[in-house]
Design a protein around this nucleic acid. Structure first.
Length: 458
DNA sequence: TCCTATGATTGTGT
DNA sequence: ACACAATCATAGGA
């Protein structure tokens, strides 16, 4: 059954059953009653037919027909009946459609956009979210370049979002007005109640809000992608600069007996390497693990850095000794100012030679007063008891390095009394480093250089 | 393209 | 809170 027939039937079955009609006019019963005015029936049928086919007409024809319908003598009665039917069906539709509860998905999107600083107040939200995200990704709060980049992109998204939102709202309003006008205009020819217009407006708004939801959804996606691109550090992993790695390695191998930098040391390293404290912590965490896992692999590296630092240390010690001899009140750490580059060591052999020369007091790059003083210095520096201000606090670490190199120097070890080959400093039987608070043992002068402290004594 | 190195994250234990 | 261990994900070299 097509639409037209249904309406015809509805009209016949529902509304024309002796109903009192607007304007005191009574419509006749639908079927076959005695005294039926066939003319009226014909009229109604005719009007309905015209209404139903009006959309098929050309604009001019329709316009002419509309005018004809408006002037039709049956129009008020028919209009009233149609209103009644519409009212009834409208009620049932309204009953089924109830005002929808707040969409949880929409609420989620709204909350997220608010949290990300896309919606809500212009300033603060975005940077707060960026800071939070940065904190979550390792506390890199000083990564200002990337953050500003992130904020710029977020602002861009925000602008696009607001522009689109505005556009949608404008379009929605325009469309609503248009539809309302249309309906009001049409309400002259067909039964459209204000309630129905209201309902239509509701439908339009719902449609537009679903479009808005899509906009919100894609904005959220864009923000998520942005976040993952800019703030997920895994994605943007960059190797540290060679210099930074060198600094870290130097510290690590010179503190091999206790490679746990204090907070201050971490800050210092972070500053030197232009990285964050968390990155320093990560680096040391990784280094400790990987070193322990495969000491063999790191042997060469350890030797290299140990030797490098040893040279620096030797200079430092020499300077310290010199200072002590001359009672000079000059800067205690002056010895550490020397750059490694001054002392390029190309082979293990040269390292060994150099170190042997150092500790035997023979001539070389370092003009040590005598070996006895050297060891005395080391002994002094080694223990916690040494509080003197003549050398810097990190001399201890330099001495560590010296010991390390010494212990690896097979020839020297033999000369010193059969010290074993280098083994990982500080690593105990359990594979862990020694208690970080335990100071190194003070070398007894009677033990001689052969007993140079090694953290391998577990 | 594969493999290794490496910075970061995650889960767990202390 | 920190360290460790496992793992992920990417960079970079062969």
């Amino acid at each position: 059954m097509d639409e037209q027939a249904r309406i015809m039937q509805a009209l016949g079955g529902v509304s024309l059953a002796g109903h009192s009609i607007q304007g005191g006019m009574a419509l006749p019963p639908p079927h076959g009653h005695d005294g039926i005015d066939d003319g009226r029936k014909q009229d109604i049928g005719d009007i309905l037919h015209q209404i139903m086919t009006i959309t098929d007409q050309s604009l001019d024809e329709a316009q002419a027909k509309k005018h004809g319908l408006n002037c039709h003598r049956m129009k008020p009665a028919l209009f009233s009946v149609l209103c009644e039917i519409k009212e009834k069906t409208g009620l049932s539709i309204r009953g089924a459609q109830e005002e929808d509860p707040p969409d949880p998905q929409l609420m989620r999107l709204d909350n997220m956009l608010l949290a990300e600083g896309v919606s809500g107040p212009e300033k603060g939200g975005g940077s707060a979210a960026a800071a939070a995200a940065a904190a979550a990704s390792g506390g890199a709060s000083d990564n200002s370049i990337e953050h500003s980049d992130y904020r710029a992109k977020l602002t861009q998204i925000r602008q696009i979002y607001h522009t689109e939102l505005e556009k949608y709202e404008q379009a929605c309003n325009e469309f609503t007005t248009h539809v309302m006008n249309l309906l009001r205009e049409q309400s002259r020819t067909r039964p459209i109640s204000p309630k129905e217009i209201e309902r239509m407006v509701g439908i339009i708004h719902r449609k537009f809000s679903s479009i808005q939801m899509q906009l919100k959804q894609s904005t959220c996606e864009a923000v998520m992608i942005l976040r993952s691109r800019f703030l997920d550090a895994r994605r943007k992993r960059r190797n540290f600069s060679k210099q930074a790695t060198e600094i870290l390695n130097e510290y690590f191998y010179s503190h091999l007996s206790n490679p746990y930098p204090s907070e201050e040391a971490k800050e210092e390293l972070a500053k030197k390497c232009s990285i964050t404290v968390s990155q320093v912590s990560n680096w040391f965490g990784n280094k400790r693990i990987r070193y322990k896992k495969n000491i063999g692999k790191f042997q060469e590296e350890a030797n290299l850095y140990a030797a490098k630092t040893a040279v620096t240390a030797a200079h430092a010690v020499a300077a310290a000794v010199q200072n002590s001899q001359t009672n000079s009140p000059t800067t205690p750490n002056s010895g550490f100012q020397m750059k490694d580059e001054e002392f390029q060591l190309d082979s293990a052999e040269s390292k060994n030679t150099l170190l042997t020369n150092m500790f035997t007091g023979s001539s070389g790059s370092f003009n040590l007063p005598n070996s006895g003083d050297m060891f005395l210095s080391m002994q002094s520096l080694n223990g916690d008891s040494y509080q003197g201000a003549q050398v810097g606090a990190n001399v201890q670490s330099q001495v560590d390095t010296l010991r390390h190199v010494i212990s690896q120097t097979a020839g020297y070890s033999e000369a010193l009394g059969g010290n074993t080959m280098y083994s990982p400093h500080g690593l105990n039987a359990n594979g862990g480093w020694h208690d970080t608070t335990t100071p190194s043992a003070v070398i007894s002068p009677t033990e001689g250089p052969g007993s140079v402290h090694s953290d391998t004594s577990n």
